[in-house]
Write a protein that binds this DNA or RNA. Structure first.
Length: 652
RNA sequence: GCUGCUGUGGCUCAGGGGUAGAGCACGUCCUUGGUAAGGACGAGGUCAUGGGUUCAAAUCCCAUCAGCAGCUCCA
């Protein structure tokens, strides 16, 4: 019998229960001792995920990581990455491959390989089949810790493993270095991992792409296999289905199909808006202007081309020149504005300002141009010319918090009206390199957090991620496919007022420097419209729809006059409508309107003509039956007025 | 910007060393039909651009431009 007096023990707290185990016992034993049952994938010791077999060396709080959790999924995906690497090693010969890294990412994992064979999608089934074999073999994963870099390098002795060696070299000396082995495959890895490959459930290789070693384009280009894994085939199928859905909703595709905008070789990165796209664009702008007028904003418009000297003063010439376009006027250099603020400050300085005007809110839908690298252009999401829904607010430091609350209120209200109720909020605080006094930063950051807390907004803090000229809050909206889009931002700016020597006259008659808030809600109208297209899948709510009502005569001959009368009535009421007087059959006309995702179709035939009525059909395929033409108009107008996100008309 | 893939009528795409095809859309005509495609006929492309190989290039090679994916960048 072991001497319990001398044997070291660890005290482990598992869901409130304390169990005592010999030091070095595997984590999983603690669950067993504590009587916790379940499908364990890993353990979490004081918040850190570790292997189930990891020896416990000191007292800790331990919880199981089980199927169905994010932690569990990450562990399974991590092990899946090793399995994929092992499969590649088996299929192409371990001596022919060099392994780089294989981390878990948001939607799965990847592994980077240096291999002569060029992966093509046709290789995926083969690799997947080998992975399935490895899972079926249920190989156990063994962790081996080595003492320092020298020993780690010794493990790799004689192997082609220049990436692994480099990784080891760059590790801090204090770091524990570990390897994981499953069957014949060993990989440098921090872990944690599943206990055995058999616990991997459903996986799929998604794509292959080039990727630079350590993201550096001057270094080796590797082949990256993207893959994903889930706890069940069902979840995997759902994921794949979602990807297809996202593809269907691609705004570039819908933009073409719905005839909203186009892009052309003659102007890469510069969108061309078609009539229907313009309707949506203008509707957003009209709405935006109304909201800003109601929130006591003034609206200004500043030039697109401004003298180079202004950009020296603003600091853009030093920091942003690469992204700017230049031109020449009368032998003077001018720049096309990449941002609106410098022009805005000229408006501010056009008059002597008083504290009585504060907070002075100047909004500008400013068209900016930025030279984005060709490879980053992406439909409306990344363009070279776009309209920022910008505003600059000038106020005193004391007003900051209240102003920020007001901006936030406006942001959330506007997001809600477009159907975005889930918003991620991020606070970025002072970076190492920054201007402005400690007191200024304290006030600004205090105002931002104060505003967030005042409205009980949940937010994450990104320490040191603020701009050098001030802290900021960023807003990301979640769309119907659960993707997040960075749109809104509120930035406090200490730099601009200094650089442009902006002043106001305070109550005591002294000249003081105002604080400037720089804010955008939608970010860029173009990009936001792209997000809206994907969010709604092209089926815009009625208030935004380019065409709201399509009149469909049953017989073009016989109901031409009546259908035109109905159309006239719709147009007079201010609705966007048209009539289909083509000679196609009614079914084809309906199909056409349906594919254009027009909210309402009005079928008019002999029956309707007799009673001055219309047979209403909703694009979500509901035949609502007949109703009086006047009643229809009133109800749709109401739907538009309230900016309803759903179609509201129902069967009477 | 880097790497890979792609570029054929307005759109989606097939074809492929011997000077081009389908469906949809479009036009004309016939059809006047009650809730997702009626029919016939027709027009439309120097196969992204420039160069090279070849008796012959849309097809093969190179470069350029553009698009897509990824990397990086940006926020």
């Amino acid at each position: 019998m072991p001497d319990s007096q001398t044997e070291a023990k660890v005290r482990v707290t598992v869901s409130g229960k304390v169990v005592e185990l010999p030091a070095g016992s595997p984590a999983v034993l603690a669950f067993k001792e504590a009587g916790v049952k379940g499908d364990f994938l890993a353990a979490k010791a004081d918040g850190k995920v570790i292997d189930l077999k990891r020896p416990l060396k000191k007292d800790c709080t331990l919880e199981p990581v089980v199927t169905g959790t994010k932690d569990g999924l990450d562990v399974m995906r991590h092990t899946s990455a090793h399995v994929m690497a092992q499969a590649v090693a088996r299929l192409y010969g371990a001596q022919n491959v060099e392994f780089a890294i294989g981390p878990v990412i948001d939607d799965g994992f990847y592994y980077d390989f240096d291999i002569d064979h060029k992966f093509v999608p046709e290789d995926f089934p083969k690799i997947e089949a080998e992975m399935k074999k490895i899972v079926a073999e249920n190989l156990t994963l063994e962790r081996r810790e080595v003492a320092g870099k020298a020993e780690a390098l010794a493990v790799l002795e004689g192997q082609r493993a220049r990436f692994k060696r480099e990784l080891i070299q760059d590790l801090p000396d204090t770091e524990t270095i570990s390897f994981y082995t499953q069957g014949e495959f060993t990989d440098l890895c921090r872990g944690p991992h599943l206990t055995a490959t058999g616990k991997i459930k459903a996986f799929k290789i998604m794509s292959v792409a080039g990727a630079y070693w350590r993201g550096d384009e001057k270094r080796d280009m590797l082949q990256r296999l993207y893959a994903t894994a889930f706890f069940s085939e069902k979840e995997l199928e759902e994921f794949v289905h979602n990807l297809e859905e996202a593809k269907k909703r691609d705004h570039k595709k819908l933009g073409r199909e719905l005839d909203l905008f186009s892009f052309h070789q003659e102007a890469p990165g510069f969108p061309f808006w078609h009539p229907k796209g313009m309707v949506i664009y203008d509707t957003i702008v009209d709405y935006w202007k109304k909201k800003h007028t109601a929130a006591s904003y003034h609206q200004i418009k500043t030039p697109i081309i401004l003298n180079e000297s202004l950009w020296h003063q603003s600091g853009h010439w030093d920091n942003y020149r690469e992204n700017m376009y230049f031109t020449e006027i009368d032998e003077q250099v001018y720049a096309v504005k990449p941002m609106n603020c410098p022009g805005g400050t000229l408006v501010y300085r056009s008059d002597l300002r008083s504290y009585r005007e504060f907070p002075l809110r100047m909004a500008e839908l400013g068209l900016v141009h930025r030279h984005e690298k060709s490879g980053v252009l992406n439909g409306l999401f990344r363009v070279r010319a776009f309209t920022q829904d910008d505003a600059h607010i000038y106020c005193t430091p004391e007003m900051l918090k209240e102003e920020i609350v007001a901006v936030m209120d406006l942001i959330f209200e506007i997001y809600r009206d477009f159907g975005f109720s889930d918003v991620n909020v991020n606070l970025s605080t002072r970076p190492e390199k920054s201007i402005g006094s400690d007191a200024m930063w304290a006030n600004a950051e205090g105002s931002l957090t104060g505003a967030l807390e005042h409205r009980a907004v949940k937010y994450a803090v990104d320490p040191g991620a603020g701009a050098f000229y001030g802290p900021k809050i960023d807003f990301q909206i979640r769309d119907s496919l659960k993707r997040y889009w960075q749109c809104g931002t509120i930035q406090v700016d200490f730099s601009m007022p200094e650089r442009f020597e902006m002043e106001y006259v305070a109550a005591d008659g002294a000249r003081k420097r105002p604080v400037m808030i720089h804010r955008a809600l939608l970010g860029s109208i173009e990009r936001f419209l792209g997000v809206l297209i994907e969010h709604y899948g092209g089926a815009f709510p009625t208030w935004l729809a380019p065409e709201q009502v399509r009149v469909v005569p049953v017989s073009e001959d016989k109901q031409a006059a009546y259908s035109k009368r109905v159309l006239e009535r719709l147009l007079q009421a201010g609705l966007r409508a048209s009539v289909d007087l083509s000679s196609s059959r009614m079914g084809a006309k309906i199909r056409d309107a349906q594919m254009q995702k027009i909210p309402y179709m009005l079928v008019v035939g002999a029956r309707e003509e007799e009673t001055e009525s219309v047979a209403v059909r909703r694009r979500d395929e509901m035949d609502l039956g007949a109703m009086g033409a006047g009643a229809f108009v009133e109800r749709v107008l109401d739907e538009v007025r309230t900016r309803s996100l759903t179609l509201t008309l129902t069967k009477q």
